[in-house]
Design a protein around this nucleic acid. Structure first.
Lengths: 306, 306
DNA sequence: AGACTGTATAGCCTTAGGTTATGGGTCGGG
DNA sequence: CCCGACCCATAACCTAAGGCTATACAGTCT
């Protein structure tokens, strides 16, 4: 079976017709018709029954599709992978981080690194945590910075710091006059939470459910914590977010409180497994750690977390 | 990247040269040279450095290979899969079992089934347990009969009976005059054991090691229990094998003893997951169960195992 | 130097896979 | 009930990928 056969079979199968497949593949209908026929000839059996002029997959076709579908996905991945490989240059750093680090820690580390290594070119972006892992596996990037990196085949993580969750509320809101807020006290307040796509969102939801003893009722669910913070500032509710986001950028109009029981999260640098780190990758790793430490001390981080 | 590019790149990479790849693919050297060049042109970067007239994979080439290799294997699997699909017919049963069942239980069930379903054609073979699972996943067969089917993605198992291990010794050999042999008593005797490729071999070795309190020293290691049995008959040693093999076929010249602690193993029919069973597959399943029960009662199986 | 091995280029041929043009089914709606 | 709107298949044609042989060229090892 040639690659074209697989592509055509797949397209025809998912669209449900030769013409549909042809449209999907941007070729003419007769071409698809012919290639499909050729594929069937070569296989030695038909994969579609022609009933009343239409194509309907038969038993063998269904089985073949079940086998081909995952393979097809991987073939598509390959092309993307190869494309990303083009950008692989020596003296070039490709780095992604989650939005939490995008305002302070990341820029600080990148700036320092760029200064120390003027001949290295840099490519960077902020992505959500799942996308960072994917980008790493797809060879779109070489290093990533995320919270609580999951154990993932082909991914290597290195712990460079830690953070935790804090509560962020509008300054105007009346909260118990305490240093440390009990999570249970949040019940009934208009909560802004993170959606479940990210590790952080999952960790937080689990903890909140534990503390509340039941499901969490969110007023607003957001994708990134920065957005949550902006919403809090607009008096849209109260949020439990990571301390790094909370303490990044502008803090006016906000009150920030520690919570108990405290929720710790790790800060990890992730790279591909079994791939020798270049000298400048190690250097950048050092800058990230330094920027984390710096941020933690400068922003009274200790005061909040321990 | 076209399929041919993947094939050629893979062949050149593993053989280490264009000429080698050409030989492996059974095409001329210039053809491989050209296709490889074309692939590199299309990718937009070179994957091999030409140093002193030879090809040596560069950084990108290595990464690409790491990505392509597993994909390549799956593509090869696909062709085999498609080939096997050719034999998929309605009214046709493809069945495999481990050698233990090949002498009595399997033939009995097949014979009865064939008699009851004269219009169904049958295809059968004996394979080692790992091969049965693989054949099932490759769509070479539709049902399999094995001991202690492992939990395997895509495989569904159904328990139809049970067996256990017994000790088989030459009639001439002097053994303790007891009904039930302690496993520990086997230490020092010339043991014939099963290799570790099969589930049974692994289970047995683990149990023996537990009982012996140390590694098992085998005089002979075999692939199938029938072979072990023949060897016992030739006075080559003493074996611990499954009761079904032990009680199948000719028993002259052998003494069979229960062992303690007893070792139980399940007898499972395996099929592909999420695939509706045909009526006759269910019927054959029934025949297998019946044949198992019949064999157990007829051969004084109870006496040995309970 | 000469034999050997490997790669690349040139020139030629076959065929998979693309095109447009066309004809023959099936079906729902006026 | 026939007409337009789909759908699929075939015919005739074209292009280029990928095969071949022949040949030149670059290292390596006797």
């Amino acid at each position: 079976m040639k690659l074209r056969h697989i592509e055509v079979f797949h397209a025809v199968y998912v669209t449900g017709s030769v013409s549909g497949g042809a449209r999907a593949l941007n070729v003419s209908q007769p071409s698809v018709s012919k290639v499909l026929k050729h594929a069937e000839d070569q296989l030695g059996f038909s994969v579609f029954d022609r009933i009343s002029g239409r194509l309907v997959p038969n038993e063998k076709g269904k089985k073949l599709f079940a086998e081909i579908e995952p393979l097809f996905d991987r073939l598509n991945d390959l092309d993307r992978f190869a494309l990303n490989l083009k950008n692989l240059k020596t003296g070039h750093l490709r780095f992604a981080m989650t939005p939490a680090f995008g305002l302070e820690v990341g820029p600080a580390a990148l700036a320092q690194f760029a200064k120390n290594n003027p001949d290295i070119t840099i490519e960077t972006e902020t992505l959500h945590s799942g996308q960072v892992v994917k980008a790493l596996l797809d060879n779109m990037i070489d290093m990533g910075l995320v919270f609580d990196a999951p154990s993932f085949p082909g991914i290597q993580k290195q712990h460079i710091g830690r953070s935790g969750f804090v509560c962020v509320a509008p300054e105007a809101m009346e909260l118990p006059e305490v240093d440390v807020l009990m999570i249970e006290n949040l019940v009934g307040l208009p909560l802004i939470t993170l959606n479940q796509k990210s590790i952080l969102g999952q960790v937080l939801t689990r903890k909140l459910e534990d503390a509340f003893g039941g499901p969490v009722e969110s007023k607003i669910v957001v994708e990134t914590y920065h957005l949550a913070k902006r919403l809090v500032k607009q008096n849209a509710g109260i949020a439990v977010i990571d301390a790094i986001t909370a303490l990044s950028g502008d803090l006016t109009g906000l009150q920030i409180k520690k919570i108990t029981p405290s929720i710790e999260i790790k800060v990890d640098v992730i790279t591909r497994l079994n791939e020798p780190k270049t000298k400048f990758q190690s250097a950048f790793n050092g800058e990230l750690k330094a920027a984390m430490d710096e941020f933690c001390s400068k922003r009274h981080y200790k005061l909040l977390l321990k």
